[in-house]
Write a protein that binds this DNA or RNA. Structure first.
Ligand code: FES
Ligand code: FES
Lengths: 147, 147
DNA sequence: CAATAGTCGACTAACTCAATCGACTTAGTG
DNA sequence: CACTAAGTCGATTGAGTTAGTCGACTATTG
């Protein structure tokens, strides 16, 4: 039940971009440093997110990436799906594949996998980057106060 | 967020064994046929489950595998953990690993991953093989009636 | 035009996964 | 006791995926 590094990096990058939303575009190098992601790899990831319509970019000096929609309108599930494909733990409960299992119609496990998929989807869909950014900011200032 | 084939096969095999609990030991060949799992691969899986204490086996003719505890006392989470390791989608929320992420203490994502892990764990832990076998039997007889 | 920054496709090394094999051990049958 | 049916175990393979790299290119700014 692991999430790929790509999915993780993508989420972290999107979070970073959300934190700086409405400022100047952020360039790859800075995201890479802030989140400790290999720059060349991050490049690919951002490109993929751009193609999927979540990011826009500007070339040249002072260029960089920025969100194409406000963070409140983007949730984690979408991002993960772009990077890793369907959230379903197994093909027989995926919307795009299934029909692989032998006794599919009478298999007691199928309902369980479905539950898992739905739970995961529900949690990730309700998590917007707006909210995550907010939580992050709160944690940072709380920490500063606390220490 | 995929489950490995090994995890899937292991669950299916355990389900099959639960369906025939209290009968003669089931041999690998039969499980393999019933669930359409490559026999040689299944061998490894059963062995691993045996080492983890969920199965016992008897050699010789009329040998085979059987559950070491009643199906009601085994849940899916345990089995998956044996085959695939921790359920956590990412290391920073796993009990046995973590501390990889850069701003772990102030990262808004961490809470989310935790939610996911807990949800998945909860669903899989409450699913015992007793119940799954029951559902399977119900589906089979229901189907027979229905068609 | 020089410098900076994103774009794109190809590439690779490492690793994991699914599966296979061969040789061995144990248990029951006659 | 020999034979045979079954599980045991470690090693190995081949395919595929993943994480990460590279080089050449294009667009923008000053
Ligand atoms: S139907 Fe897919 S595991 Fe049973
Ligand atoms: S702490 Fe692990 S993703 Fe942020």
């Amino acid at each position: 039940m692991r999430l790929s590094t790509k999915g993780e990096y993508a989420s972290r990058a999107m979070l970073e971009l959300s934190l700086h939303h409405e400022e100047k575009p952020l360039h790859i190098r800075d995201i890479s440093k802030a989140q400790d992601i290999p720059q060349r790899f991050l490049e690919q990831i951002l490109l993929q997110l751009k193609r999927a319509g979540y990011l826009r970019s500007r070339k040249g000096p002072d260029g960089g990436y920025y969100l194409s929609r406000p963070p409140a309108e983007i949730n984690v599930a979408e991002v993960i799906r772009v990077m890793d494909g369907p959230l379903a733990p197994i093909d027989c409960v995926s919307v795009t594949a299934h029909e692989v299992c032998p006794h599919e119609s009478s298999c007691g496990l199928r309902g369980l996998w479905k539950e898992v998929r739905d739970a995961v989807a529900q949690i990730m869909e309700k998590a917007t980057f707006e909210e995550l950014a907010e939580r992050t900011r709160a944690a940072r200032s709380g920490r500063r106060r606390g220490s």
